[in-house]
Amino acid sequence: MIELENVSRDYGDGKVVHALNNVSLRVARGERLAVMGPSGSGKSTLLNLICGLDEPTAGVIKIDGVNIALLDDDTRTRLRREKIGMVFQTFNLLPTLTTVENVSLPLRLQGISRKESEIRANAMLEKVGLEGRATHRPDQLSGGERQRTAIARALIFVPPVLLADEPTGNLDSATGEDILILLDDLHFEFDTTILLVTHNVEAARHCDRILRFRDGMVVQEERLNLAQVMG
């Protein structure tokens, strides 16, 4: 599903910072991968490269066999829209839009009518347990509800890949756990491949595999068995 071959990402002109250094990895369809590591280890860079928001300095990134580095910006954007859902630590909802409008936004950007978009968004909101909050604006929602909205938005296209960057980082532990369970449920329902960037070991235990990063390189890989995953 996701393949990285010798991917490097350098920043700066003078003193070069190697954010990712010759990383290779494969993520199978339906797999849940946790990426852990200290700040500046290259976790977020990895997500940005996979979703095509950033371009590698060297190496190949393939999504479903397509090398995204060879695509132009619009094609990459469309691929992201349809195949990759993104969830952020800070939710990144549009404050002026209601919950249902936020969730239906990717569909509207695709040119799907408001009516159909909202039907699909309401169905997704029901799946994330926000059926009563469709007309609320982000500032009227709790942190957990905002993240659920962000997840619903990320999954509105039922993308095969979900990239989650510290999705529980801004939430209390109970709410964070609810969100992780929700991700588990959605994973089982849609067979979504999940890449979860986290500092939280408990969160990582919801995944099948853990990659530990340091200084832009994979330093440890740990495969969790079902018992570990289920706690």
């Binding site: 979703c51 954007t77 469309r78 349809e82 990144n92 549009l94 990320a154």
Partner: peptide, 16 residues
């Protein structure tokens, strides 16, 4: 900036 970035991240084209 962030809002526009989010729009781009969730699939908004430059033309949009």
């Amino acid at each position: 900036k962030r809002e526009l970035g989010v729009l781009r991240a969730i699939g908004g084209l430059r033309s949009q």
